[in-house]
Design a protein around this nucleic acid. Structure first.
Lengths: 254, 254
DNA sequence: CCAATTTTTCCACAATCCGGAAACTTTGAC
DNA sequence: GTCAAAGTTTCCGGATTGTGGAAAAATTGG
């Protein structure tokens, strides 16, 4: 399997989390056999891992025998969120104060992006992204910003896996277009979503350098406000935000 | 350690989650050596497990070398929360509609309770409990309701571990008092927090039967409204709520 | 700059986890 | 109601995988 130089890693732990992810991706609930389709693991192995997770409360078993994410995960998520929120909220809020448009943070999660934090624009007409919401990589500014810092192999793999559904007539739908676009993103330093996700909405996204999990910050608003002039004005603030976030993630915060 | 008849369970997975819990309990961030104090595991083992978790993004390493919960946990927590929220919100809301006081759900989490869901009273003076907030077992109605369904050994162990700090002059502070109180809870079918957590606040708490993780529902309000008459009126609604929740947790919901 | 502490790497042993096969349970068809 | 098919769970021998003592590296403090 072309192992290159990854760290060892405890297999059963990695597999257990893979199963949690799969259940999460399936909407929070899945049958044993469904999980078996999405993973090369043999059924007894999946079953044993799930049984373990059920035993410690991170998965619960419904009486259809299906498996769902357990309540104990909520707490862990809360703590992680609070930690990250404490770091990210002031940074995002500052972006909103300076630029007047909604700002958010998303992480790479499987073959999509997941929004983990947001600060909203004071405008009545504003972009709202629920925390926890997932979007495609190829059709969002955060997604493209993240892809731009990954190597081409990985981009290819992720996008092949997820497909390239068009959300609007402007969505990028071919790999060739996408690679051109990523080249432009790298040259520019940030990604632009030109109504590719939703008509009338334009977003600027910039990667957080050196983040533990690939991660990006974006500002979004209606095309009427998020103009090229806006982008020029926004760039240094985005740069500052990603730099601060990078530092905050790496350094302890008490 | 007096292993009795627990299911096998994959050790490395159990240990990995134990570490996540410990980090969470330490406020979301801990050093390797700190973790070593709270667990009998040898340092290299802890280190290897953490390295694995870092590799897959569930833990991140700060550049003090300390370990913090990673951003990927947020997503899992969100999904679990959404699932549970979908089940619990209408049930809690119904309680609020019928009784007019704030209702919440808490789970046993280590030696404390964690609130995982809430619906607020329409009154201006109302009880607000943030989701994710933790409280003591001996000083809350949910805590006492949960303890009442556990066996005495476990109660003893949990409470010894957590201690019995007094939040108000009415808080139970001795093990003897507590066991008497739990007896009363069992007889009554639900627990009462008589201003033991906060003066002026009275709560009724009832356990969810057969929950995967020990769990309880409560309604809380000012003593002036949460009278004994209120309790009599509330009991059947609480009973209905815990029964519904029990069923909803066990049965799939699409 | 050197000593003490903490974190990380190494490696041989064997305990732990793995997964094929089979038993059991549920679902659906007749 | 009965039987077949699909899905789930248990078993268990074998070897891969994870374990943890010991030592090296890195960091902190004096």
């Amino acid at each position: 399997m072309a192992e290159t130089k990854t760290t060892p890693g405890v297999q059963s732990v990695e597999r257990a989390f893979e199963l949690l992810e799969l259940i999460g991706r399936a909407g929070g609930e899945a049958a044993l056999s469904e999980l078996a389709l999405d993973t090369p693991l043999p059924l007894p192995t999946i079953h044993r891992l799930l049984r373990t997770l059920v035993g410690i409360g991170y998965v619960r078993q419904l009486n259809n025998r299906r498996y769902a994410l357990g309540p104990r995960l909520i707490r862990l998520g809360e703590v992680a969120n609070r930690q990250l929120g404490a770091l990210s909220t002031p940074i995002l809020q500052n972006l909103v104060n300076e630029l007047g448009e909604s700002a958010s943070i998303a992480v790479l999660d499987g073959d999509m992006v997941t929004y983990i934090s947001q600060a909203q624009s004071p405008h009545a007409m504003r972009m709202i992204t629920e925390v926890g919401r997932r979007s495609s990589l190829h059709g969002t500014s955060v997604g493209k910003a993240i892809l731009a810092v990954l190597d081409n192999d990985r981009v290819q793999r992720l996008v092949n896996q997820a497909g390239m559904p068009a959300h609007t007539p402007k969505t990028i739908t071919t790999m060739h277009q996408l690679f051109d676009e990523l080249e432009a993103v790298r040259a520019r330093g940030y990604a632009i979503d030109e109504e590719e996700q939703e008509l009338g909405v334009r977003c600027l996204g910039m990667s957080v350098p050196g983040a533990p999990t690939p991660m990006a910050v974006s500002v979004s608003g209606p095309v009427t406000r998020v103009t090229d002039e806006f982008a020029s004005r926004a760039e240094p603030y985005l740069r500052a935000a990603t730099t601060q976030l990078s530092a905050a993630l790496a350094v302890t915060t008490g």
